[in-house]
Every structure is written in structure tokens, then in C-alpha cells.
């Protein structure tokens, strides 16, 4: 394979020509399709998104509508960018987001197909932009610890072993991009939910609400129309933060535990003693 030249000092500027097949769709309810574009003048030092920027500048000058795609921090942490590149969410490199992908990764003359995240729970807004609010709604169902601002005890009162803290951090590093959903055959959001459940269930602060949390988040996930987990682990393979599917097992465990231990005795209402104090 001819890989676009590695940069060297001096004459490193190799120009690459590419054919892009990009999903264009004007709105959520419109018909979409793949449209082919030629781009030349592509430097191997461009990031993938800068290559799309260049295409968009061309389109704008030609009086056409630029390709809508999502991006913000462009350093792999905000979770905005969301492109399926040649059938793989975030493209051919592992452990990175689309914005961290560089054109030197692609051979000259190649055809690249770019599609949006596809899932019923992620309706297309326009072109390559999808609506990922379903993930927010799952978080709203229980992805938090209910503590008020103020009055928190000293941070060192709570001793948390280094290993627990590291495990929690591994899970918490999810950036909510939704690549796991995009990669899953069933468009399941299990890895996303598992990461949050595992993060909070691993820490003592999260324990009081663990039963309610896992139940509510799974319920919200089902409600949003995500599929179920088939344990194929495509999610892990495309996760830009390499979040482990072991957390899915942990989620299942938490769920089982909640199912078995969580069934409460019917709450006894307080005996009526009026408003007397």
C-alpha cells in the first residue's frame, strides 16, 4: 500500500487526491444518499476534519451547501465528532476520535465513504450530524449522585483505594460520543450506560443510589429505542477511550443485584400524628 508520505523537514509536502462518498441528507425526514466528491490538494499533515473543512470551503465558493458535520475541541475529548469512515466509527485508527485522525493514514487515490452514526435513537439532523440527546436522557434518568451543593464533607474523609479510584476513572473517561452505539450491530448503548454505572458503582459516593440508578438508566436506554447487547464487543474496538466491555458485565451484575436485592418491602407509611410537633 502506498501510504501518503511521512513528513520530513524540507520537501515533505505530498499532495493526495481522494474520492469521497459522503452521506448527504437535508433534514431528518428527507431522503438521503451518498454523494461523490473529488478532493485534491490534500496534505498528509491535514487532519481528517481539516480535509472536510477544505472540501467545505470549495463547496461554499462554488455556491453549494457545505457538508454538515459535528466537531468542536478537535483534540479528542469533547465527543462531538462522529463520522463512520469506511464502515468504522471514528475511522481506521484505534483509540482515537475522528478529529485525531490524519490524512497520512490514507493512500493516494483512495475512495473514502463517510456516513453518520446510524441508530433509531440517533435521528439525523442534517448530513453527518445526528441528534444524540437520547444519551443525555439516559444520564438524566440516573447518571448522577444526588447531592446538594454545599455541606460536602472533607474530600479525605472518604478514603478510596487507588485501585478503585483508577477503575472508576477508567469508566468515567467515556466522552459520550456514541461510537459504541454506531458500531454495535444492534445499536445498543450498553457500553455507554455501563461506563457511567460502573464509574458511580465503584465509588463509595455512588453506592447509596446504585439500585435505583442501574434500574432507571437501563429502563431509559430501552425506552430510547437502543438495541440490546449481543456481546460482540465492536463497541470496545471502536471506543476512542478504550473503555472495556468488562464494565458491561459489571452493569449486568449491578442489574442482577438490583433485581434481587432491590425489591423493597412496601414502605410503611408513618402513623398519622397530624401536624403536631
Amino acid at each position: 500500500m502506498l501510504v501518503a508520505g511521512r513528513k520530513r523537514r524540507g520537501g515533505y509536502r505530498r499532495i493526495v487526491k481522494l474520492t469521497l462518498r459522503i452521506w448527504r441528507q437535508r433534514g431528518p425526514n428527507e431522503r438521503g444518499g451518498l454523494v461523490t466528491y473529488q478532493v485534491d490538494d490534500i496534505s498528509p499533515d491535514m487532519s481528517f476534519l481539516e480535509m472536510l473543512d477544505a472540501l467545505n470551503q470549495q463547496l461554499i465558493m462554488a455556491g453549494e451547501e457545505p457538508v454538515a458535520f459535528e466537531h468542536d475541541c478537535r483534540e479528542g475529548i469533547c465527543g462531538s465528532c462522529s463520522l463512520v469512515i469506511d464502515g468504522v466509527p471514528h475511522g481506521p485508527d484505534r483509540g482515537v476520535t475522528t478529529c485525531q485522525l490524519y490524512m497520512r493514514r490514507f493512500a493516494d487515490g483512495k475512495t473514502i465513504t463517510i456516513e453518520p452514526w446510524r441508530a433509531r435513537a440517533f435521528p439525523i439532523v442534517k448530513d453527518l450530524v445526528v441528534d444524540r440527546r437520547a444519551l443525555d436522557r439516559i444520564m438524566q434518568a440516573g447518571g448522577y449522585i444526588s447531592v446538594n451543593t454545599g455541606g460536602a464533607v472533607d474530600g479525605n474523609t472518604l478514603l478510596i483505594g487507588k485501585e478503585e479510584a483508577e477503575t472508576a476513572m477508567d469508566a468515567a473517561s467515556c466522552i459520550g460520543c456514541g461510537a459504541c452505539v454506531a458500531a454495535c450491530k444492534n445499536a445498543s448503548a450498553m457500553l455507554f450506560v455501563a461506563a457511567k454505572v460502573a464509574h458511580l458503582a465503584t465509588l463509595p459516593q455512588g453506592k447509596p443510589e446504585r439500585t435505583r440508578r442501574v434500574m432507571a438508566m437501563v429502563q431509559a436506554m430501552d425506552r430510547e429505542g437502543f438495541g440490546s447487547c449481543g456481546n460482540q464487543y465492536e463497541c470496545e474496538a471502536v471506543c476512542p477511550k478504550n473503555i472495556s466491555v468488562r464494565f458491561i458485565a459489571l452493569l449486568n451484575r449491578e442489574y442482577l443485584r438490583a433485581g434481587i436485592l432491590g425489591t423493597k418491602m412496601p414502605a410503611q407509611s408513618d402513623p398519622p400524628h397530624g401536624e403536631s410537633y
Binding site: 448522577y144 447531592v147 460536602a152
Partner: peptide, 8 residues
């Protein structure tokens, strides 16, 4: 406050 919120 951040510890209480579960910041790892």
C-alpha cells in the same frame, strides 16, 4: 463538592 459528586 466534586468528591461528593463522584469525580474520580
Amino acid at each position: 463538592q466534586c468528591v461528593a459528586l463522584g469525580v474520580p
